[in-house]
Structures are given as structure tokens and as C-alpha cells.
Design a protein around this nucleic acid. Structure first.
Lengths: 244, 244
DNA sequence: TACATTTAAATGTCTGACAATTTATTCGTC
DNA sequence: GACGAATAAATTGTCAGACATTTAAATGTA
């Protein structure tokens, strides 16, 4: 584990990179303890604050965890789903919001991915995931629900759809696409009429999954995509128009 | 922007969280300069090393970049695709390798997601992406190609398939699924016979995309998935068997 | 005006110290 | 000998202050 002595980049970044490589390559295994900060500083021939900055970089990516006290130190962390979800969602959200991704492109990606889950969801949906979907459909029909709450419920519904596929890898990958869309969806004002329409699509999807009808669910999803697109385009058009 | 004075967690983690929230919420916009380390230390009433550890955490997530010199400092970074790709791939790879994800589950997720891209890819494939796919098919037919190179070429082929959909959000989301599978695929020993079979599927996929035939491409992908599954299961079975 | 020099501001790094936390060990008591 | 409290040791968390390095603006000079 070495660093390039004539590299001009930050030492802490180099050290973090060297350790990260060891972890990704599997040469440092889960729960293994890294040398103490003092030992690392000695090994890399840098000061302790520099080592600490490197370790904080790794901690930010959930690659290590630290414990104080005797027999404490930095340990290779088992990357768990909640941490991975959080990172993925933060990255996806910022990628969308900072790069002027159009509503259309984000929408297309999200629904394409959701349709990918549908055959598995129709096969494996459980009473539990169906109940979640029904509950959210009911919530979405409540009058007086704020637009933001409606969006949050929408996300929960779609996450239940994805989770129905019972494939954690799929759920993880989809989390970014579904959650990152929420800020864009939050710009939409949902009228009573549009809520009713969305509710109809959601009901069709839940019904299709319950009946193990993958193609019907995919068809409903496609129609929901088209409908969402029109809602988004209306918002964009209204924004582009001179205010007044 | 404040931190909880009775929170027992690391100060640097709290400060990083506070700044991260500002960025994600859009209250700190792209290219905006953060206060200097000295000013931040003053504001949060901590020392400069603590502030620096917080900033390194954010830098590790590509949320900020730093510049030295006069008028340097920390700036909100525009999260670009290469950085986001890198983070996503690292996270996905570790999630798979550290959590005993079965070959079957990872494979299912990957091919489900790739099939999701296929309709768009059949619609939008360009001479460029087709050429990439043909080139990789040709490479995969070369005798004397190492298993690792074969896998790398396989990843390039599938990335070209995904990129054919011409949706950057889709490409980003898929990158994690496709690349994270590579370590698992690398465990497979590809015989001349299995390479020939895979090559056949790849050719069918490329032909289908060239002919704008989405369903044929999806069918070939599904068969490739089934075939890959059998290869993976053979490896797993051989590993489980007592050595000798 | 054009170019070289100086200066100021900021990050990068180092040294040394102390605080807080956690575990193992030691010692005293019953 | 067994149990509990004090102690010691190791390690991370935090701080203060200093110096090195880099960069761009300001200044001076031909």
C-alpha cells in the first residue's frame, strides 16, 4: 500500500485512494481493523491530521467506521443497504438537479426501469407489498392532501411496486431513479382531476399485480408515464411563459 | 446553517451534514464559494482541522472542490457524469461483494434493467454505438483472449447497448448494475464453446438493434441471461464441491 | 502598454498537546 | 476464590499555532 511521491494531488486524497483500492480489491476484508492513525501516519510518512483527512473521506463513503477507546480504531465497514441507498439517492438527486436534466429524460428513465421490475413484481408480489400499495392509493384519494404529501405517497407507492420484485439489487438501483424524480415531481401542481387520473392508473397497476398480469401492469405504467409527461410539460410551458 | 450543540456525534460529521443539506436543498448553488476554512471554524465554533475534516468528507462525495491560492477556497461542485458514475460503481460493487449477493439475484437485476433499455436502444441506436458493439463482438472472437479481457469486452459491449438508448440518466443508473457484475463474471472460466454461444447472443442483439427490432433483442437478452445463469451456477457448484 | 515583482489570501501540511472514550488489568474487600 | 472498584493503556476527537505552497491581484518598472 503505497502512494506516489511525485504526485501533486492532495496527500489525503492519495492515501484515501490507496486504502479504498485495498478495500475494493478485497485485500482489506470486512471488519478488518486498519492500523491506528499514528501507524498510518508513520507508514505513509505524513502527519496524523493528513491521515485523519484521508480516513474521513473513506468514512463519508461508508467504507470504514471508527471507534474510540482502547482496541478501537478504523474498521472496514460492511456496506449495508440503507447506507448505499442514501448515497445513491443523494448522488442521483444532485446529478439531476445540477445538470439541467429535462423532465422528459428523467421521466423516461424512471418508467423504463419500473417497467423492468414489473414482470418480477407480478410474479412475486406479496400481500404485504400489495397492502402498502392499496394504503397509498387510499391516502392519495384523501381530499385536502398537500401536493408535497401526494408526491411523497407517490414515491412510497412506486417503491412498493419495485420492492414487489423481491430483488434487493433491483430495489437499490431503482431507488435512485424513483427518489431523484421527486424534486421534479414536486414542481407539479396536482389538480383534483389529475389526482383522480393518477389514482386510476395506480389502481390498475395494483390490480394487475394482484392478478399476476405483468403485461397489463406494464401497459398501465406506460400510460401513467405518458400522462405524467403531459403534466410535466404543462408545468415547463407555464414556467417558460412570461409571468403574469 | 447550525449544528446541534448537545449532539454527541463527531463535529466534523455534523458540519459536513449541515453543509450537505444546504447543497442538496439548493440553498448553496453550483460554483458558489463557501466561506474560508477560518470563517467556517469561527461560525461553527470549532478548530480549523475539524472544519477541514468536514470539507474532506464533502469532497469525497464530489459535492465540493477546493482551490488553493488567493480567491481560492471551497466551491459547490457541479456533479458531473464521470464522478457520479465512479461513485455509483464503487458503491454497487462493494454492495454486491460485501453482502453475499447471489449470482442469480445480481444477474436477474442486471438483465431486467438491460431489457428496459432495449426498446429505446432499438429506436435510437446510432452507427457509432453499433460499431462499438460489432468491434467488441469481433474482439470476443479472437483466440487467445484471456478470460479477464473477455469479461472487460463483455462489459464494453453491454455499456454500448445501454448507451444506445441515448438517455444519460438510464446510462448512469445502469452503469452500477453492469459494472458491479464484472467481479462476479470474472470468476467464470469461459470455454471456447461458451464464448461461441455468448458471441452468438451478442450478434443476435446487435442485429436486432440494427434492424430496430426491440422484441428480438429482448428475446436474445433473455436467452443470454438464462445461459449466463447456467455458467454461473456451474461455477458455484464447482466451488461448493469438496476440492480435488 | 507590457512585463516582472511583490503582496495578500487561501488551502495544504506539520508539530505537539490535551480531552474523551473504551477495554483490560490490577487491587482490595468479602 | 469471587466480585467490584479504581487504574492504566490505547486510540480517536479536538484544539492551537505555525509554516509551506499556490494563486491571482496589485504594484512597480522599463
Amino acid at each position: 500500500m503505497k502512494i506516489d511521491p511525485d504526485n501533486k494531488a492532495d496527500l489525503s486524497a492519495q492515501i484515501a485512494g490507496a486504502i479504498r483500492e485495498e478495500i475494493v480489491a478485497g485485500r482489506l476484508i470486512v471488519d478488518e481493523r486498519l492500523p491506528s492513525e499514528a501507524e498510518l501516519a508513520d507508514h505513509f510518512e505524513v502527519s496524523r491530521p493528513t491521515v485523519r483527512e484521508a480516513l474521513k473521506r473513506l468514512a463519508a463513503q461508508s467504507l470504514i467506521r471508527t471507534a474510540r477507546g482502547a482496541f478501537g480504531g478504523a474498521f472496514v465497514n460492511r456496506l449495508n443497504y440503507p447506507d448505499a441507498y442514501g448515497q445513491h439517492i443523494t448522488t442521483s438527486t444532485l446529478l439531476l438537479s445540477m445538470n439541467a436534466i429535462s423532465f422528459d429524460v428523467a421521466c423516461e428513465a424512471r418508467y423504463a426501469l419500473e417497467r423492468a421490475c414489473t414482470p418480477l413484481a407480478a410474479l412475486r408480489r406479496t400481500p404485504d407489498t400489495l397492502a402498502t400499495m392499496r394504503a397509498e392509493i387510499h391516502r392519495q384519494g384523501q381530499p385536502g392532501l398537500s401536493d408535497e404529501s401526494f408526491c411523497a405517497s407517490d414515491v412510497t407507492f412506486h417503491r412498493a411496486l419495485v420492492d414487489s420484485a423481491a430483488n434487493p439489487v433491483l430495489s437499490y438501483q431503482l431507488a435512485g431513479a424513483v427518489e431523484a424524480m421527486q424534486p421534479l415531481m414536486n414542481m407539479i401542481t396536482f389538480t383534483a382531476r389529475s389526482r383522480e387520473a393518477i389514482l386510476g392508473f395506480h389502481t390498475r397497476i395494483a390490480d394487475a399485480l394482484e392478478g399476476n398480469e405483468a403485461e397489463a401492469a406494464q401497459a398501465a405504467l406506460s400510460e401513467l408515464e405518458a400522462y405524467t409527461l403531459t403534466l410535466g410539460r404543462d408545468v415547463m410551458a407555464a414556467r417558460a411563459r412570461p409571468k403574469g
